[in-house]
Design a binder for these strands. Structure first.
Lengths: 193, 193
DNA sequence: CGATTCTTTGAAAACAGTCAATCTGTGTGG
DNA sequence: CCACACAGATTGACTGTTTTCAAAGAATCG
């Protein structure tokens, strides 16, 4: 299962067999059945995880106990609670498998060590972080500027591999609207075709 | 005016006189009168700017020509169009001075060079990026989970130095609500004290 | 099949947006 | 120094959208 992560990196940068071996020795494989948690609110997130297969989401609970979806991830994406990871503070989010999933997990220490030992990873990781930040800026812009319907369309177009794989009420909570409103948007949308 | 930037860095990491000199030689001072643009939509953002004094905002225009405020910045903050800067693509945002402002501007090339020449800057810059990313995650969470009133309160509490310095209709566009709604939230809020 | 989870529907109420008019404060030029 | 213009903020009436609540339908899974 490490091969998926190796393939991911090899597509972007050439790694020697020794480097791959080093990397493998620092990863560990984790299988998560549907509904299992990779991280729960209150824990410190000391790892990052690469999704080999399956589907997960991160979400937060508000004061009334309502769930708000922060992110969906599938194959070839990374998932982490960034704030907890970078500050060492208790996580405010939960990360849960929406399907049976396979992950390659890297501890923060291992990740740092690999970055030192394999300098070519540096620009790659920087690029991932930059893309991630830009995506979050786009999401903010959509959130403050677009109607629920436009946000839904953007979501479907931006993540076609995700939207038909996750429950609609979670999509609604990702878009910041109620599940009923999402239902109505969709039926309106279906008619207008 | 470089002294403000020097002080900013020196507070976080010790720099030798030579390093400071190198840095200074790569910065240039820019004065922006109120309403002037540091960056306009369509241009490529090839620099980052440190605010020495004054106040600026970045905003985007939607298809109907309405303004949506992405960010406010004051003294000791950095401002840049991240997507344009990192991808070299035309900016979708505008950066405009809300007051007469003074900036220290660093070209992308200079910034990269300084990072290579002064390795101690690396962790510092990483930390700034991380904080910036975490802040944007928090904003997304508030935007999808909280009511306009809660968002307003959070904004006022999080950025007390900004909210009483910028026009309210820009605060409204930052929060993703109309200026009239913000007025009503505020009057409601004032009564409830 | 029965239980759980997810989605849809309808009706009512709450909420936010729009439009148009008015008000307030600031600053500029006569 | 006043008057006017301008940008910004507020108000009210109205409209349209979204939420909420309750109930019922689908779909999925053991």
């Amino acid at each position: 299962m490490f091969s998926a992560l190796a393939a991911y990196f090899n597509e972007k940068v050439h790694l020697t067999p020794q480097e791959l071996e080093l990397m493998e020795s620092h990863c560990h494989y984790k299988k998560l059945p549907k509904k299992a948690f990779l991280l729960q609110e209150g824990e410190v997130c000391r790892f990052s995880a690469f999704v080999v297969s399956g589907c997960l989401r991160s979400y937060r609970l508000d004061d009334e106990g309502h769930e708000h979806t922060l992110k969906f991830v599938i194959k070839d994406w990374w998932i982490v609670d960034n704030e907890s990871y970078s500050n060492g503070t208790p996580a405010q989010s939960n990360i849960q498998a929406l399907e049976d999933s396979e992950l390659m997990v890297l501890s923060k220490e291992s990740f740092q060590l690999l970055l030192e030992q394999i300098p070519q990873l540096r620009p790659l990781v920087d690029r991932l972080q930059t893309n991630s930040f830009n995506a979050s800026q786009q999401r903010i812009y959509k959130q403050i500027s677009a109607s629920p319907e436009e946000r839904y369309k953007t979501f479907v177009n931006t993540y076609p591999d995700i939207f038909n794989r996750v429950p609609l009420h979670m999509v609604a909570s990702y878009l910041g609207i109620s599940r009923e409103t999402l239902t109505r948007i969709r039926s309106h949308f279906a008619k207008s075709k």
